[in-house]
């Protein structure tokens, strides 16, 4: 089998629950170093797809490999060193400070007992700086605003130094300005470090703005896949989002804006 770095490879992987097919078997490849956006209407199977990749749930058909290895063959920590995952709803943080929460990202590296090495400390410091959280390090996470909290969770993923970041609607709670800020941060990481990103995005314009590769899901099926220019066309989007959708050309390299006619 051909092998280019630690890509995700799905081979007939699908998922059903309670006799209902949530995600039809998929065969596809996700390349590391790219930003893959998952779009589609509610209930289209985006979150399920992401959870399969994150190994939060196991496919009931087919297999998923990472870098040629089957997902179940990874140990817990070994997998976390490869893949970081941020769920749609981040939990309450039990009074932890920013510093403490971000440090938990290093668990995959030092485990329960290992000493926190200079490398661990450097990774935490860098993640905090990168997410612009230096002023908040000793503040309780629960006391921060929604946008700040989201940045803390992203910083925790960064500290994990995995090759993949999986994000489920990372900006759901944010206003447009903060959304752009966070997604640009994620996109720049993908470019600078060769990290692979899979993000569920409910805003197709955001996807078009930052993604290299857009996967559109509907009713548990992959209905379209391509670059922003390929996706941002009325004939692709209308079956997904309804007949009122239309596309406007945008300035710069990124192609289009979707609006409701």
């Amino acid at each position: 089998m051909e092998q280019n770095g630690p890509d995700f490879a799905l081979d007939g992987a699908g998922f059903s629950a309670g006799g209902r097919r949530i995600l039809s078997p998929l065969a596809l490849r996700l390349a590391v170093g790219h930003l893959h956006a998952l779009v589609g209407p509610n209930g289209s199977g985006k979150s399920t797809f992401l959870k399969l990749l994150a190994r939060q749930i196991a496919p009931d058909a087919g297999t998923i490999r990472l870098g040629g290895r089957l997902l179940p063959s990874f140990g817990s920590r070994a997998f976390a060193r490869e893949v970081a995952f941020m769920p749609q709803f981040t939990p309450a943080t039990d009074g932890m400070t920013v510093q403490e929460l971000v440090s938990l990202g290093r668990f995959a590296w030092h485990g329960a007992l290992g000493r926190s090495s200079p490398r661990d400390k450097a990774a935490v410091r860098e993640a905090i700086e990168r997410c612009d959280l230096t002023a908040f390090v000793h503040r309780p996470v629960d006391a921060l605003s929604g946008g700040e909290r989201q940045r803390v969770w992203i910083a925790m993923m960064l500290a994990q130094q995995s090759r993949w970041l999986l994000l489920d609607e990372p900006t759901s709670a944010l206003d447009a300005g903060h959304q752009v800020e966070i997604l640009d941060l994620v996109a720049s990481l993908a470019r600078e470090r060769g990290v692979g990103v899979v993000a569920v995005l409910h805003d197709i314009n955001m996807a078009a703005r930052i993604a290299d590769d857009i996967l559109a899901l509907d009713g548990g099926n992959l209905v379209f896949r391509g670059g922003p220019a390929d996706v941002m066309r009325p004939e692709v989007l209308r079956p997904l989002f309804g007949p009122h959708v239309d596309v406007l050309p945008a300035e710069g390299s990124r192609p289009a804006v979707v609006y409701m006619r």
Partner: peptide
Amino acid sequence: YARPLAILPLGETTARALGLA
């Protein structure tokens, strides 16, 4: 188990994402 005990209150999903068995 001090570190796992810091992680577990964050819930099953996050704990697993962080690499905790």
